[in-house]
Simulated scan of single mutants.
Amino acid sequence: MALLITDECINCDVCEPECPNDAIYMGTEIYEIDPNKCTECVGHFDEPQCVQICPVECIPFNPAWRETQEELMAKYHRLTDGKTDKKAE
């Protein structure tokens, strides 16, 4: 699954720079997550970084965008093909 930012978002700006896939962007009123770029940090980190840092806990899984770990890893490879691997050790 991709992640989703809910209406509880307070636009604190901490999640956007934490996203290794540049999936988080400012929407019309609150930050949003592009599900085509969100890998839940699979391939980069053990846990989604935006979820870890969000002070209001407004970033749940997006029930409309279900993906397996294998699909998330394949998306990671598509997004990072030819780029330096940022995977956390």
Results as ranks from 00 to 15, higher is better:
Ile24Pro: 00
Cys12Leu: 09
Cys38Tyr: 02
Lys87Thr: 15
Phe45Ile: 00
Asp13Leu: 10
Asp22Gly: 12
Leu79Gln: 05
Asn36Tyr: 09
Pro55Ile: 05
Ile33Ser: 03
Thr28Leu: 11
Asp85Ile: 14
Ile5Ala: 07
Glu40Cys: 13
Glu16Phe: 02
Arg66Cys: 01
Asn36Glu: 15
Glu67Val: 00
Glu32Gly: 06
Val51Trp: 05
Glu57Gly: 05
Tyr25Met: 09
Ile33Leu: 08
Gly43Arg: 01
Gly82Gln: 10
Val14Phe: 10
His44Trp: 12
Glu47Lys: 10
Pro63Lys: 05
Arg66Met: 05
Cys41Asp: 13
Asn11Tyr: 07
Ile33Val: 15
Asp81Ile: 10
Lys86Tyr: 08
Glu89Asn: 13
Glu71Asn: 05
Arg66Gln: 12
Cys12Ser: 13
Cys19Leu: 08
Phe45Lys: 08
Tyr76Glu: 06
Gln52Phe: 01
His44Tyr: 14
Ala88Trp: 14
Asp22Gln: 11
Asp81Gln: 15
Gln69Pro: 03
Asn11Phe: 07
Cys41Phe: 01
Glu70Lys: 13
Asn36Lys: 12
Glu8Trp: 11
Leu79His: 04
Lys87Gln: 14
Thr68Asp: 03
Cys41Ile: 01
Thr68Leu: 02
Ile59His: 00
Leu72Met: 14
Ala23Ile: 04
Thr84Trp: 09
Lys83Val: 04
Ala64Ser: 13
Ile24Thr: 04
Met1Asp: 10
Thr80Ala: 07
Ala2Gly: 09
Glu16Val: 14
Glu16Gln: 15
Cys41Glu: 00
Gln69Val: 04
Cys50Arg: 00
Gly43Lys: 01
Leu3Met: 14
Tyr76Met: 01
Val56Thr: 13
Glu70Thr: 10
Glu57Asp: 12
Asp34Ala: 09
Cys12Gln: 10
Ile59Asp: 00
Arg66Phe: 00
Glu67Phe: 07
Ile30Gly: 00
Tyr76Thr: 02
Glu71Phe: 07
Ile30His: 11
Gly43Thr: 01
Glu40Ala: 15
Glu57Met: 02
Cys15Ser: 07
Arg66Ser: 03
Pro20Ser: 12
Trp65Asp: 12
Gly82Asn: 11
Pro48Trp: 02
Tyr76Gln: 04
Asn21Cys: 06
Lys75Ala: 03
Pro48Ala: 11
Asn11Met: 12
Asp46Asn: 11
Pro55Met: 04
His77Ala: 10
Tyr76Lys: 06
Thr80Pro: 00
Arg66His: 02
Glu71Tyr: 07
His44Met: 06
Glu8Ala: 15
Ile30Lys: 11
Ile10Asn: 07
Pro48Cys: 09
Glu71Pro: 02
Val14Pro: 00
